[in-house]
Amino acid sequence: MSDVAERRNYDLRDEIKAYWSERAATFDLSPGHEIFSEEERTAWHRLFLRHLGSGDGRMALDLASGTGVISHLLDDLGFKVTGLDWAEPMLNLARRKAAGRKRKISFRIGDAENTMEPDECYDVVVNRHLVWTLVDPAAAFAEWLRVLKPGGTVLIVDGDFVSTSVLERLCGKLSAWGQRAGIFKPEAPIHSRDMMETHRSILSRVYFARGARAEAVVDLLHEAGFIDIEVDADLGEIHRTQAKNWNLFKGLARRSQHRYAIRAKRPDLA
Protein backbone atom coordinates (compact mmCIF):
# COMPACT_ATOMS: atom_id res chain seq x y z
CA MET A 1 0.00 0.00 0.00
CA SER A 2 1.28 3.46 -0.88
CA ASP A 3 2.02 6.19 1.67
CA VAL A 4 -0.85 8.19 0.19
CA ALA A 5 -3.28 5.31 0.75
CA GLU A 6 -2.03 4.80 4.29
CA ARG A 7 -2.56 8.47 5.11
CA ARG A 8 -6.04 8.39 3.58
CA ASN A 9 -7.05 5.32 5.61
CA TYR A 10 -5.60 6.80 8.77
CA ASP A 11 -7.56 10.00 8.23
CA LEU A 12 -10.79 8.10 7.59
CA ARG A 13 -10.34 6.02 10.75
CA ASP A 14 -9.80 9.21 12.70
CA GLU A 15 -13.02 10.64 11.29
CA ILE A 16 -14.96 7.50 12.18
CA LYS A 17 -13.57 7.55 15.71
CA ALA A 18 -14.46 11.24 16.16
CA TYR A 19 -17.96 10.69 14.76
CA TRP A 20 -18.82 7.89 17.20
CA SER A 21 -17.22 9.79 20.06
CA GLU A 22 -19.65 12.63 19.38
CA ARG A 23 -22.58 10.23 19.00
CA ALA A 24 -21.90 8.65 22.41
CA ALA A 25 -23.95 11.15 24.42
CA THR A 26 -27.20 10.27 22.62
CA PHE A 27 -26.43 6.71 21.51
CA ASP A 28 -28.62 4.98 24.11
CA LEU A 29 -31.64 7.16 23.26
CA SER A 30 -32.21 5.40 19.94
CA PRO A 31 -34.32 2.25 19.57
CA GLY A 32 -32.14 -0.25 17.77
CA HIS A 33 -29.17 0.80 19.89
CA GLU A 34 -30.18 0.34 23.53
CA ILE A 35 -32.68 -2.31 24.65
CA PHE A 36 -36.07 -0.75 25.43
CA SER A 37 -38.09 -3.74 26.65
CA GLU A 38 -37.67 -7.14 28.22
CA GLU A 39 -39.39 -8.54 25.14
CA GLU A 40 -36.58 -7.18 22.97
CA ARG A 41 -33.94 -8.42 25.41
CA THR A 42 -35.44 -11.91 25.20
CA ALA A 43 -35.40 -11.78 21.39
CA TRP A 44 -31.68 -10.93 21.41
CA HIS A 45 -31.00 -13.71 23.91
CA ARG A 46 -32.71 -16.19 21.59
CA LEU A 47 -30.59 -15.08 18.65
CA PHE A 48 -27.37 -15.47 20.64
CA LEU A 49 -28.37 -18.81 22.12
CA ARG A 50 -29.26 -20.06 18.63
CA HIS A 51 -25.78 -19.31 17.30
CA LEU A 52 -23.48 -19.29 20.33
CA GLY A 53 -25.12 -21.46 22.97
CA SER A 54 -25.02 -20.58 26.66
CA GLY A 55 -21.98 -18.80 28.04
CA ASP A 56 -20.92 -21.15 30.84
CA GLY A 57 -18.02 -18.84 31.64
CA ARG A 58 -16.63 -18.88 28.11
CA MET A 59 -14.61 -15.85 26.92
CA ALA A 60 -16.44 -13.40 24.65
CA LEU A 61 -15.08 -10.35 22.83
CA ASP A 62 -17.62 -7.65 21.93
CA LEU A 63 -16.06 -5.53 19.19
CA ALA A 64 -17.07 -1.89 18.74
CA SER A 65 -18.93 -2.38 22.00
CA GLY A 66 -20.16 1.20 22.24
CA THR A 67 -22.07 1.73 25.48
CA GLY A 68 -22.05 -2.00 26.17
CA VAL A 69 -25.49 -3.09 24.98
CA ILE A 70 -24.31 -6.35 23.38
CA SER A 71 -21.80 -6.93 26.20
CA HIS A 72 -24.66 -6.92 28.71
CA LEU A 73 -26.68 -9.38 26.63
CA LEU A 74 -23.70 -11.75 26.53
CA ASP A 75 -23.15 -11.28 30.25
CA ASP A 76 -26.82 -12.19 30.83
CA LEU A 77 -26.10 -15.54 29.16
CA GLY A 78 -23.08 -16.35 31.30
CA PHE A 79 -20.18 -15.29 29.08
CA LYS A 80 -17.10 -13.64 30.55
CA VAL A 81 -17.14 -10.49 28.44
CA THR A 82 -14.55 -8.01 27.23
CA GLY A 83 -15.87 -4.98 25.34
CA LEU A 84 -13.51 -3.22 22.95
CA ASP A 85 -14.15 0.22 21.47
CA TRP A 86 -11.90 3.02 20.24
CA ALA A 87 -14.17 5.92 21.29
CA GLU A 88 -13.38 6.95 24.87
CA PRO A 89 -16.78 8.64 25.44
CA MET A 90 -18.49 5.36 24.55
CA LEU A 91 -16.23 3.44 26.92
CA ASN A 92 -16.86 5.90 29.76
CA LEU A 93 -20.61 5.42 29.39
CA ALA A 94 -20.20 1.64 29.14
CA ARG A 95 -18.17 1.49 32.34
CA ARG A 96 -20.69 3.61 34.24
CA LYS A 97 -23.57 1.49 32.98
CA ALA A 98 -21.82 -1.74 33.99
CA ALA A 99 -20.98 -0.38 37.44
CA GLY A 100 -24.57 0.77 37.94
CA ARG A 101 -25.84 -2.71 37.06
CA LYS A 102 -23.08 -4.40 39.08
CA ARG A 103 -21.77 -6.26 36.04
CA LYS A 104 -18.24 -7.62 35.84
CA ILE A 105 -17.59 -6.66 32.23
CA SER A 106 -14.16 -5.40 31.18
CA PHE A 107 -14.24 -2.43 28.81
CA ARG A 108 -11.05 -1.18 27.21
CA ILE A 109 -9.92 0.87 24.27
CA GLY A 110 -9.01 -0.93 21.08
CA ASP A 111 -9.36 -1.06 17.31
CA ALA A 112 -11.60 -3.76 15.84
CA GLU A 113 -9.21 -4.11 12.89
CA ASN A 114 -6.15 -4.44 15.13
CA THR A 115 -7.29 -5.50 18.58
CA MET A 116 -3.86 -6.09 20.19
CA GLU A 117 -5.49 -9.03 22.00
CA PRO A 118 -3.55 -12.30 22.51
CA ASP A 119 -3.70 -15.15 20.00
CA GLU A 120 -6.42 -17.79 20.49
CA CYS A 121 -7.89 -16.06 23.55
CA TYR A 122 -11.65 -15.97 22.92
CA ASP A 123 -14.35 -18.58 22.47
CA VAL A 124 -16.63 -16.13 20.67
CA VAL A 125 -16.26 -12.78 18.92
CA VAL A 126 -19.46 -10.76 18.49
CA ASN A 127 -20.25 -7.43 16.89
CA ARG A 128 -23.34 -5.48 15.88
CA HIS A 129 -23.40 -2.84 13.14
CA LEU A 130 -19.62 -2.77 12.87
CA VAL A 131 -18.84 -4.46 9.55
CA TRP A 132 -20.51 -1.80 7.40
CA THR A 133 -18.12 0.81 8.91
CA LEU A 134 -14.87 -1.12 8.35
CA VAL A 135 -12.11 0.41 6.25
CA ASP A 136 -10.38 -2.95 5.69
CA PRO A 137 -12.74 -5.86 6.47
CA ALA A 138 -10.31 -8.48 5.13
CA ALA A 139 -7.72 -7.40 7.71
CA ALA A 140 -10.40 -7.26 10.40
CA PHE A 141 -11.64 -10.78 9.69
CA ALA A 142 -8.09 -12.14 9.75
CA GLU A 143 -7.64 -10.42 13.10
CA TRP A 144 -10.82 -11.96 14.50
CA LEU A 145 -9.72 -15.40 13.32
CA ARG A 146 -6.40 -14.88 15.11
CA VAL A 147 -7.92 -14.03 18.51
CA LEU A 148 -10.43 -16.90 18.39
CA LYS A 149 -9.58 -20.24 19.92
CA PRO A 150 -9.61 -23.20 17.48
CA GLY A 151 -13.25 -24.10 16.98
CA GLY A 152 -14.35 -20.65 18.17
CA THR A 153 -17.26 -18.69 16.70
CA VAL A 154 -17.72 -15.21 15.27
CA LEU A 155 -21.22 -13.75 15.14
CA ILE A 156 -21.79 -10.66 13.00
CA VAL A 157 -25.09 -8.75 13.21
CA ASP A 158 -25.26 -6.18 10.44
CA GLY A 159 -27.01 -5.05 7.29
CA ASP A 160 -27.01 -3.11 4.06
CA PHE A 161 -28.07 0.42 4.98
CA VAL A 162 -27.17 1.88 1.58
CA SER A 163 -28.98 -0.10 -1.13
CA THR A 164 -32.50 0.86 -0.09
CA SER A 165 -35.57 -0.71 -1.64
CA VAL A 166 -38.50 1.20 -3.14
CA LEU A 167 -40.61 0.19 -0.13
CA GLU A 168 -38.02 1.44 2.34
CA ARG A 169 -37.65 4.78 0.58
CA LEU A 170 -41.43 5.26 0.41
CA CYS A 171 -41.92 4.37 4.07
CA GLY A 172 -39.05 6.66 5.04
CA LYS A 173 -40.65 9.59 3.22
CA LEU A 174 -44.05 8.91 4.80
CA SER A 175 -42.47 8.69 8.24
CA ALA A 176 -40.62 11.99 7.76
CA TRP A 177 -43.77 13.67 6.40
CA GLY A 178 -45.80 12.46 9.39
CA GLN A 179 -43.23 13.83 11.82
CA ARG A 180 -43.14 17.23 10.10
CA ALA A 181 -46.93 17.35 10.10
CA GLY A 182 -47.09 16.52 13.78
CA ILE A 183 -48.92 13.23 13.18
CA PHE A 184 -46.00 11.16 14.50
CA LYS A 185 -43.70 11.92 17.39
CA PRO A 186 -40.24 13.13 16.29
CA GLU A 187 -37.54 10.53 16.39
CA ALA A 188 -35.03 10.91 19.20
CA PRO A 189 -32.31 11.93 18.98
CA ILE A 190 -32.49 14.41 16.11
CA HIS A 191 -28.98 14.90 14.75
CA SER A 192 -27.64 18.13 13.37
CA ARG A 193 -27.22 18.66 9.64
CA ASP A 194 -23.44 18.67 10.14
CA MET A 195 -23.58 15.26 11.85
CA MET A 196 -25.70 13.82 9.06
CA GLU A 197 -23.30 15.19 6.45
CA THR A 198 -20.37 13.69 8.34
CA HIS A 199 -22.15 10.33 8.41
CA ARG A 200 -22.80 10.45 4.65
CA SER A 201 -19.21 11.45 3.94
CA ILE A 202 -17.80 8.59 6.02
CA LEU A 203 -20.20 6.07 4.49
CA SER A 204 -19.14 7.06 0.98
CA ARG A 205 -15.51 6.09 1.73
CA VAL A 206 -15.66 2.88 3.76
CA TYR A 207 -15.15 -0.51 2.08
CA PHE A 208 -18.87 -1.27 1.93
CA ALA A 209 -19.80 2.15 0.55
CA ARG A 210 -22.34 0.45 -1.73
CA GLY A 211 -23.81 -1.59 1.12
CA ALA A 212 -22.67 -4.55 3.21
CA ARG A 213 -24.54 -7.38 1.50
CA ALA A 214 -24.45 -10.68 3.35
CA GLU A 215 -22.98 -12.57 0.40
CA ALA A 216 -20.03 -10.14 0.16
CA VAL A 217 -19.33 -10.52 3.89
CA VAL A 218 -19.48 -14.30 3.55
CA ASP A 219 -16.95 -14.26 0.70
CA LEU A 220 -14.49 -12.26 2.80
CA LEU A 221 -14.97 -14.58 5.77
CA HIS A 222 -14.19 -17.57 3.54
CA GLU A 223 -11.05 -15.85 2.28
CA ALA A 224 -9.94 -15.14 5.86
CA GLY A 225 -10.16 -18.85 6.69
CA PHE A 226 -13.53 -19.19 8.43
CA ILE A 227 -15.64 -22.30 7.86
CA ASP A 228 -19.22 -23.48 8.50
CA ILE A 229 -20.59 -20.06 7.61
CA GLU A 230 -24.33 -19.56 8.07
CA VAL A 231 -26.43 -16.52 7.18
CA ASP A 232 -29.49 -16.02 9.39
CA ALA A 233 -31.96 -13.50 7.95
CA ASP A 234 -34.66 -14.40 10.49
CA LEU A 235 -34.39 -11.32 12.71
CA GLY A 236 -38.12 -10.65 12.63
CA GLU A 237 -38.64 -11.16 16.36
CA ILE A 238 -36.07 -8.48 17.18
CA HIS A 239 -37.46 -6.09 14.58
CA ARG A 240 -41.04 -6.52 15.83
CA THR A 241 -40.06 -5.64 19.39
CA GLN A 242 -38.07 -2.60 18.22
CA ALA A 243 -40.88 -1.41 15.93
CA LYS A 244 -43.07 -0.72 18.96
CA ASN A 245 -40.85 2.31 19.61
CA TRP A 246 -41.43 3.79 16.12
CA ASN A 247 -44.32 4.95 14.01
CA LEU A 248 -45.84 2.49 11.54
CA PHE A 249 -43.86 3.66 8.50
CA LYS A 250 -40.52 3.81 10.33
CA GLY A 251 -41.10 0.25 11.50
CA LEU A 252 -41.95 -0.93 7.99
CA ALA A 253 -38.87 0.78 6.58
CA ARG A 254 -36.70 -0.92 9.16
CA ARG A 255 -38.15 -4.36 8.49
CA SER A 256 -37.67 -3.99 4.73
CA GLN A 257 -33.90 -3.53 5.10
CA HIS A 258 -31.37 -6.24 4.25
CA ARG A 259 -30.37 -7.20 7.81
CA TYR A 260 -28.78 -10.44 8.94
CA ALA A 261 -26.70 -12.36 11.43
CA ILE A 262 -23.72 -14.33 10.11
CA ARG A 263 -22.14 -17.08 12.17
CA ALA A 264 -18.78 -18.54 11.20
CA LYS A 265 -16.23 -20.87 12.82
CA ARG A 266 -12.49 -20.94 13.13
CA PRO A 267 -11.29 -24.41 12.11
CA ASP A 268 -10.62 -26.75 15.01
CA LEU A 269 -6.98 -27.81 14.77
CA ALA A 270 -7.79 -31.09 16.49
Rank of each mutant, 00 (worst) to 15 (best):
L29T: 10
L29V: 04
S30Y: 08
G32C: 06
G32M: 12
G32D: 11
H33R: 15
H33A: 06
I35E: 14
I35K: 13
F36K: 15
F36L: 14
S37Q: 15
S37Y: 15
S37V: 12
E38C: 10
E38L: 12
E39T: 14
E40F: 14
E40V: 14
E40D: 13
W44I: 03
W44T: 07
H45S: 04
L47E: 11
L47R: 11
F48A: 07
L49A: 03
R50V: 02
H51T: 09
L52Q: 10
L52K: 13
G53Y: 09
G55Q: 12
G55N: 09
D56M: 05
G57S: 02
R58P: 00
R58F: 00
M59E: 00
A60L: 00
A60S: 01
D62S: 08
D62W: 09
L63A: 06
A64Q: 08
A64P: 01
S65K: 14
S65Q: 13
T67M: 02
G68H: 14
S71N: 10
S71E: 08
H72I: 11
H72P: 02
L73W: 14
L74T: 07
L74V: 04
D75F: 07
D75G: 05
D75L: 02
D76A: 01
D76Y: 10
D76E: 05
D76M: 02
L77D: 01
L77W: 05
K80Y: 10
K80S: 06
K80Q: 11
T82L: 00
L84G: 00
D85S: 07
D85P: 04
D85V: 05
D85G: 03
W86V: 04
W86I: 06
E88D: 14
M90S: 14
L91S: 15
L91M: 13
L91G: 13
N92L: 05
R95C: 00
R95A: 01
K97T: 05
K97M: 02
K97E: 05
A98V: 01
A99V: 01
G100A: 06
R101K: 15
K102A: 08
R103W: 13
R103F: 06
I105Q: 10
I105R: 14
S106W: 12
S106N: 11
R108V: 08
G110H: 12
